[in-house]
Design a protein around this nucleic acid. Structure first.
Lengths: 186, 186
DNA sequence: ATTCTTTTTTAACATTTGTAAAATTATTAA
DNA sequence: TTAATAATTTTACAAATGTTAAAAAAGAAT
């Protein structure tokens, strides 16, 4: 998934604005297992995933809890860092070798004040992330773990091949034992 | 909480832009129990709460599940309607008589394309809502119902006086019986 | 104040989910 | 291939939460 597709997918902007944005984006290749974000740091960049898969997790009395997976086309971002310039809760590690598009947030902020199309692009970005986050919240509040697991399978059939079940279990908010029980059910 | 405070609290914009925004906002008083949003409708306005308290809920096999409370300074919005022009999941009713500032989304969209300050204000609005939604998700995934109840008490001590426990229980994702047990604990 | 209605708590029991440890299966490296 | 390691499932039991129904408490209406 290339950078033009990713930009347009968020919100279509005129060619000149897109070029302005792309001037501030550069591509990086990082190895599997690479720790991209650390929970105790203010992150200074956002990343768009060209290829690969990543995971965000945090610690809850000594055990890792995975709360996000991102793959091709998704954005790796620490919202707390991006919006409030504060430390986030997320550690992000790469579950595969990844090609990422890197964009420094300070540069992006400058573009927001200069170009109305990019400002609206940034607005659309936040709005779309918001919808995704809200859907995760709703699904978590309204659906049983079992239903959410099945939903995940239909929405992201590849995920099961790409991430291990212990991560998936904590993502679903249940133990690995419970997930095994759910998988054994049918 | 007046409209200038509410606007500035989201993001400070120049006087001229604020006036432009305020031209499109009008105040309404609505009675307790009023059903402001319906789940099967595309909502065409957003509301800022000047005074009062509201609740968003949805149905999950015949029982109501409350998933949001809003009070003075908060925004009543159907994100699905606002962002994607689709039906949302929320019914919103007013738990007290409310004074609301109403803003039609079509008018707001026009301002976004015309005024870069308002575009950035809209961006900040989405970003701040995103942070709030993310925090709710994180709290829901990482904390027990008991801890979330106690957190709610410290964050919003007035909430307990203003909403009934059955709503609070479903908001916390537990039954009313469980909530009673939690409250009885200490 | 008294009745009626609604809200909240309590109780008993069923179901779900968690914990810890062992068994199985899959993956990696020599 | 084989041993070593890591991931997943299974088991048995414990703890937490749900269900249903009844009791108690609080609030509203006459």
């Amino acid at each position: 998934m290339n950078i033009d597709q990713i930009i347009d997918n968020i919100y279509c902007i005129p060619e000149t604005s897109r070029l302005l944005l792309k001037e501030n984006i550069n591509e990086v290749r990082l190895p599997k297992g690479y720790l991209l974000f650390k929970a105790d740091k203010v992150e200074t960049a956002v990343y768009f995933i060209k290829r690969g898969i990543a995971r965000a997790y945090t610690y809850q009395n000594d055990n890792e809890i995975t709360f996000w997976f991102g793959k091709e086309g998704d954005t790796i971002i620490s919202m707390k860092s991006y919006v409030e310039n504060k430390k986030g809760y997320e550690n992000v590690d790469l579950l595969e070798e990844c090609d990422l598009y890197e964009l420094k947030t300070t540069n992006l902020q400058k573009l927001f004040d200069k170009d109305i199309h990019i400002a609206n692009w940034g607005r659309k970005f936040a709005e779309k992330e918001l919808i995704k986050t809200e859907e995760r919240l709703i699904s978590r509040q309204f659906q049983t773990a079992s239903k959410r697991y099945k939903q995940l399978l239909t929405d992201n059939p590849d995920l099961l091949q790409r991430v291990q079940l212990s991560h998936l279990a904590s993502y679903l908010g249940i133990t690995q034992v419970s997930l095994s029980r759910i998988r054994a059910e049918k």
